[in-house]
């Protein structure tokens, strides 16, 4: 007799998939815009376009399907690095991401996994 082992449930599925991203993105973006540490980087952006980018970022950080490349990350943030973007700002974004998920009732273990994925983009974001 052959017993199928259950396929492992991905991080993205555990978080709730695209619906979870949709539920998180406005709250995440709102926190970013009101956080004095990082809000100035978003002063002159188009909100609708920026929300789409935040959604793509959250999908990636949630372990979902994405087409993020290190090169895109570098190009997208080069202008901001020139304006003073540094490691403390990445720390702030990862902290805000955790706070957003905590408010949604996501378990700490999953939040740590999301933070680790976000952390993996640090060098590209900072163009190091």
């Amino acid at each position: 007799m052959h017993i199928m082992s259950p396929s492992p449930v991905s991080l993205f599925e555990q978080l709730g998939g695209h619906a979870a991203v949709e539920a998180a993105v406005d709250n995440f973006y709102r926190k970013v815009l009101t956080d004095d540490r990082v809000s100035s980087f978003f002063d002159d952006v188009d909100m609708d376009r920026q929300r789409a980018k935040q959604k793509a970022f959250l999908t990636m950080a949630f372990g979902g399907p994405n087409s993020y490349s290190g090169k895109d990350m570098r190009n997208a943030h080069a202008r901001l690095v020139a304006k003073g973007l540094n490691g403390s700002h990445v720390d702030a974004i990862i902290e805000i991401l955790g706070a957003t998920l905590r408010e949604m009732g996501v378990a700490e273990g999953l939040i740590q996994q999301v933070a680790a994925i976000a952390e993996s983009t640090r060098n590209d974001v900072l163009n190091r």
């Binding site: 406005d26 709102r30 815009l33 009101t34 909100m47 609708d48 929300r51």
Partner: peptide, 12 residues
């Protein structure tokens, strides 16, 4: 105003 409405709670 778009930003203010969003920060006051309206979804994008």
């Amino acid at each position: 105003l778009k930003k203010k409405l969003f920060l006051s709670g309206i979804a994008v």
